[in-house]
Design a protein around this nucleic acid. Structure first.
Lengths: 225, 225
DNA sequence: GCGGTGAGAATATGATCAAAATCGCCGCTG
DNA sequence: CAGCGGCGATTTTGATCATATTCTCACCGC
């Protein structure tokens, strides 16, 4: 019965470093941090109002996942993807994500599809109102809610790491071109789910990824002029 | 001139947490730690003669890379791959590693191939003498020396993470069946390098991976009886 | 069998030390 | 005399440690 004394939804207390990790990760994923921006420990302890150790651990974790980069001189910053690295990201994402989507397809329940449709409508609303942050968050939720159904924790972790590397650049694209130019390839994905057509779903996801990568590629190309 | 005052080979001092990370990583990769074995912070501080903070950071990093697992009740242990996860590892490795090998092929210099041949002869010697540790180390070196030539840091990091998850189980296989049953698919790989045939190299790597995975699969299957 | 209790291990803090970057000062050169 | 470049002190930041606190698990008595 003592489990209720915190009066809350969570029976187990979440350790601080975990909380800090999630907050920092979201800052990277949803574009609160710009590529190239330096990340200091003491800055974060002040900003997030946390101790030094949890912040350090969160940074180490995110560094291992590729969301942050060590600059040799023991400084940490948000990485800026170059064109060559974009090729790597493209290959890995185009290989893994359609595969995950395809596996997930067969185990999708009706309630899952309904949930995904709700997220998709959130995405559309975010595009209409020009709310970049909300678009990014729901786009992330759409993909990972789907991928999670594949029950493949290892591949999921890898894809997660790819999104962490991709996130800041995607944010730059949105900031530059606005939400109007953003892809909405999710209609055909949802249709494929309803039909239970794994191959079609994989194709839809593939097209979605291609479009996103192409936008970042153009953004990088024009930025380097 | 002051750069020489440390009188040493290393102009830059390597931080302790980095050293600890490398040592722990090698322990995982080369089978000093068995699957399921618990990993305690204080145990490592004693064993590696280090402070608590560096050990904590190394553990966080390896956890993020999938080399260690958190057990919910803030314990850490070496993960034991199940059959379902082996499928994931197989898919990811078979997708990424032949690709890396294929890219690397064109940029291989004569000196690179000679180096790889030397490593391969080390592997053969280790198989002959039944030296599992040496086999594992040189097998790792063979693959990653090759993959590094692909100049693809992101994919390399992902593959590295896959090997970290795979390592302990491979060690179990070797311990069970000895080195005599170990694959040596490297001859054809080396031949393909000499010929500059990227496709053939990719096939050779693929066969090598298939064989390794198959052995682990059988090991898991028999262990579960 | 069950709940309390204690040992041990992990988490988290703040202090301390070392390294790096920044900025200002000085001398040199054009 | 003004601008430039290098040198050194200050200050910011990272690395490490010792320690306090919290949590888990297992043992023991009821």
């Amino acid at each position: 019965m003592e489990k209720l004394i915190d009066g809350g939804v969570l029976p187990r207390k979440i350790p601080t470093h975990e909380v800090i990790y999630c907050r920092l990760r979201d800052m990277v994923l949803f574009g609160q941090l710009k590529p190239g921006q330096p990340v200091t420990i003491q800055g974060l302890t002040a900003q997030l109002d946390a101790g030094m150790t949890p912040v350090r651990e969160a940074i180490r974790r995110l560094t291992a996942e590729g969301a942050l980069t060590l600059q040799g001189n023991r400084r940490v910053c948000v990485p800026d993807v170059a064109l060559t690295q974009l090729e790597e990201l493209a290959f890995a994402r185009l290989t893994l994500e359609p595969h995950l989507a395809s596996i997930a397809c067969s185990s999708l329940k009706k309630s899952d599809i309904i949930r995904l449709e709700k997220i998709d409508s959130e995405i559309n609303r975010a595009i209409d109102t020009g709310d970049v942050q909300r678009y990014l968050m729901n786009n992330y939720r759409f993909h990972f809610d789907l991928y999670e159904q594949a029950q493949s924790p290892i591949l999921l972790a890898i894809v997660h790491s790819l999104w962490l590397r991709f996130g800041p650049s995607l944010r730059v694209v949105c900031g530059r071109f606005g939400t109007s130019s953003l892809p909405d390839r999710h209609e055909e994905a949802l249709a494929a789910m309803h039909a239970g057509d794994a191959a079609a779903l994989a194709r839809a996801v593939e097209q979605d990824i291609r479009q996103g990568i192409e936008q970042v590629r153009q953004s990088i190309a024009t930025a380097n002029v």
